[in-house]
Design a protein around this nucleic acid. Structure first.
Lengths: 237, 237
DNA sequence: CCCTTATAATTATCATATAATAGCGATTGA
DNA sequence: TCAATCGCTATTATATGATAATTATAAGGG
């Protein structure tokens, strides 16, 4: 009863994640409407050619991210959009795969503008000695890559820089943004890499302010960075 | 082999959620260290007196929230703290249950200060007609409750007000904050309800600015509100 | 000493059976 | 006729046992 097609077509990830991904796609794209009851377990098992175990694990995964809700006798219902946890990296990955990404990028930029300046300010206040060392090393790589430019390398070091800022806030609620940001950066290569526009100056200002422990300066520097990258349109990979 | 004790001691929720909650508690409290391998499925099944089905669903739930990671042969490992999704309402609920809440409240306030002013500004720009109607109705209730004060009612209407602001942003990434905020408000009754300190004036300013479509005014008004509630210490329920 | 292969431990998946839940209709009594 | 109660049934929830896939570790060979 094993269907190798799904194994091959999907990634190397586990079966229930592949099934979850397919169901998520239908929900996120609107192919399955909100508040709608999806087919019963038995039907979906046949549809995906997987066991109830795998299917139920997929449904549980989507439930955890706020996409579904199951009840005996009544079935499994698609929850309304305000319950979908877009701040979950895996869900965000599925969203990005839909392709409607210029809009997602703009929405994400609006989030960054709210959260990153404050994160930089908090990092200036709370970064540990080790985090400052990491940030320092990362910025030096950044500086190097900006002079010997390579799009992929820049994305990686840029991502690592901002990731470290979030981790250095010392605030639990800022931590998840690190993963969300990484997911976005990986999906939008060249999001800020056009014609050498690496904004190294703005990054240096953020870096210096954090190292100096100057929260206000870090906040303002990060605002400037985001205002600079404002108009750039993303290129999906 | 069914153990009724767990059914009774836990809530009315499903078995795997109860098991997940217990494991989450051990992880979040540090009783189980980060990067540590937890006991195998068989051992945990006996420990919790549940079937492998229930236990595995519990582990899958925690995996989805970034707390665990499983591999064949190697086992199930506790992920490092920067992978825990504190912006998941269910996980936050577990965190709150640990009791160490004054600190969590302060961290959450630091998040609100970053996100809420921008959310208010976006809401002023993007709220739909229906959302404005809802916000209007909610503020009127708020106004009423502030004059006929009741702590629980105030919490509910205050929560609903800020929730609506997030939903009115029209930005997917702001939506999850609505649920996170609700979870926090429900857990910290009287977080801003001391001696009639309902901040109705500040709320009115936010409300008016959003209805008028004045983003800058909405942002500033929300900043004022959060600076006002700054020093208040929470009381856990 | 390194590379390959075999082993074993653990999770992953499958299959089937039984229990709990709750919508819905039938039945009954006023 | 209406309303409350009871029983039926579809669906998910949980349990159990078996088999497959994965990979760290050890064994063996060059």
């Amino acid at each position: 009863m094993h269907n190798p097609f799904i194994q091959i077509s999907g990634s190397k990830r586990s079966l229930h994640v592949q099934v979850a991904r397919e169901i998520a796609r239908k929900i996120l794209s609107g192919e399955v409407a909100q508040n709608e009851i999806i087919p019963s377990e038995m039907v979906l098992c046949e549809q995906f050619s997987v066991s109830r175990t795998a299917l139920r694990e997929a449904i549980k995964l989507l439930t955890s991210k706020g996409l579904l809700e199951s009840k005996p006798k009544v079935g499994t219902r698609v929850k309304s959009r305000d319950n979908w946890n877009f701040l979950d990296a895996q869900l965000l990955d599925w969203v990005i795969d839909l392709g409607d990404n210029a809009f997602v990028y703009q929405e994400f930029l609006a989030l960054r503008k709210a959260i990153e300046p404050e994160a930089a300010a908090l990092a200036a206040q709370n970064a540990t000695a080790q985090q400052r060392i990491l940030l320092s090393a990362t910025f030096q790589q950044m500086d190097y890559v900006s002079k010997n430019f390579d799009a992929k390398q820049w994305m990686e070091v840029d991502m690592e820089f901002h990731r470290l800022v979030f981790l250095s806030t010392g605030n639990s609620f800022y931590l998840p943004f690190a993963n969300v940001l990484c997911t976005m950066f990986k999906s939008f290569i060249s999001h800020s890499s056009e014609k050498g526009g690496t904004c190294i100056g703005e990054h240096r200002a953020i870096y210096s302010a954090i190292m100096a422990g100057d929260a206000e300066k870090a906040r303002e520097a990060n605002k400037r960075l985001l205002d600079t990258t404002n108009h750039r349109l993303p290129t999906s990979n």
